[in-house]
């Protein structure tokens, strides 16, 4: 199974995401933002970083990169897509996911190990977890506050589309402690914290992020 990892100008976490894909048991394939070519991958990861310097709004310019047109088309046909941090922001700007990520409520850039609870373990990217499982993975961003209107929030909660919530104090002002959401079909997932930085105990606080990268293998077997 081939999982594409997109690099935009300013992406930081593409190497870690590729390493996580390989450790999870799939083959990581590098994709370049300016190439309208998905290289026949079975799934795509939009990694974290500061694509296009976060100019205008985080993810606002990346959304119009040539590769994103193909990602949006493929996601519509059911291809699994995971956006982490800046990737989540790109997915929201692309309207593949509802809502938006805004400045952390206390204005501070946060970098810490964060406990989250897996709320929906039935998406393409969370099936290796159990519903209610708590994991610790790094959270590092300045614009991680998930915002949407009341109707969208009710829809996300009502349809079980919140996939993960922060445990304990709200780190960034996200509505309903939302750390990650999915689309209606469960193939597109956006997540603010970074599972790709927690895939082995040598380099991460835990290895509990690896489940996102093994889940995708289950999705393909189905």
């Amino acid at each position: 199974m081939r999982v594409g990892v997109i690099t935009f100008p300013g992406t930081l976490d593409d190497r870690d995401a590729a390493r996580a894909v390989n450790l999870g048991g799939a083959e990581a394939v590098s994709l370049w933002h300016a190439d309208a070519d998905l290289k026949a991958v079975d799934a795509v990861i939009l990694p974290g970083g500061f694509s296009y310097g976060d100019y205008l709004r985080c993810g606002a310019i990346s959304r119009f990169a040539p590769v994103m047109k193909l990602v949006i088309e493929a996601a519509g046909k059911g291809m699994p897509v995971l956006g982490i941090c800046n990737g989540f922001q790109v997915l929201c700007e692309s309207h593949l996911l509802p809502g938006a990520l805004t400045r952390n409520s206390d204005l501070h850039f946060l970098c810490r190990d964060q406990e989250i609870e897996i709320i929906n373990s039935e998406t393409a990217w969370t099936s290796s977890y159990k519903k209610g499982e708590k994991i610790v993975i790094p959270l590092k961003n300045g614009e991680g506050s998930f915002q949407c209107d009341d109707n969208t929030l009710a829809m996300l909660e009502g349809e079980g589309r919140v996939i993960a919530r922060y445990v304990g104090e709200n780190p960034n002002g996200s509505r309903n402690l939302i750390a990650g959401i999915t689309n209606e079909r469960g193939n597109v997932v956006g997540l603010m914290p970074h599972p790709e930085h927690a895939i082995d105990e040598l380099t991460g606080p835990t290895a509990q992020g690896l489940g996102f990268f093994t889940s995708i293998l289950n999705a393909m077997v189905k």
């Binding site: 805004t102 400045r103 952390n104 409520s105 206390d106 204005l107 506050s145 915002q147 002002g173």
Partner: peptide
């Protein structure tokens, strides 16, 4: 402008 109901931490600061 941010919509009125959206928190504006920069404005608050």
């Amino acid at each position: 402008m941010l919509k009125p109901e959206i928190l504006d931490p920069q404005g608050n600061a």
